[in-house]
Amino acid sequence: MFNELWFLIQKEFRLEWRQKTMLTGMLIYVISTVFICYMTFKRIIDVPTWNALFWIIMVFAAINAVARSFMQESRGIQLYYYTMVHPAAVILSKIIYNAALLISVALIHLLFYSLFLGNEIQDMTMFLIGLLLGSTGLAATLTLVSAIASRASNSPSLMAILSFPILIPLLMTIIRFSRNAIDGIDWVMNASYVYVLLALIGMVVTLSYLLFPYLWKD
């Protein structure tokens, strides 16, 4: 199974490298959104607004990015995988690929966001850890939801409807965590959020591993 997983991850990255559609698409989306925000706000000094806007842009980018992960594959390819590999390998490879994609998008997003709208972050390491965990959490949650949505009907609106309510707990935790990072609050206070985030990610990955085989068979 690990060989299959490794092979599938390589395949995802190679495909991305060859086409470069996803990453460039996401970057254009993020940069243009940030630029629109810059033209409306100029500079955001208020920390809660800065933080909330950052994550809202991130969530929309993530939903757009991950929604395609199951839709771009044709029925034929999916059937081929079905006969060749373990279903858990498919979902895990997609989660890992999406996490990598979202982390890179998040970093570039942070770069442009702080360039245009100002940077008030006091504890940069903590914020980056939050960015890492948050992107991974978004990727893991949205990958399973996109699998569900692609099975139901291939409409992108269904993906948004299904994912927003499910993302709320993750978003609330990550927004509070990164706000504390911006305010430079001590690790002792903030560590519990890291545990919650790690537990959430662990839970989502386990659930994906357990539930995806049922979505798979048709």
Partner: peptide
């Protein structure tokens, strides 16, 4: 909404069950 968007009964049950289990776990956290 998810239930309504699937025609086939067997498929609807399975996909809705997957979503419901996932949603319940998130809700507990929430």
């Amino acid at each position: 909404i998810l239930r309504n968007s699937i025609e086939d009964e067997q498929k609807r049950g399975r996909i809705a069950a997957v979503y419901s289990i996932f949603a319940f776990a998130m809700m507990i956290v929430f």
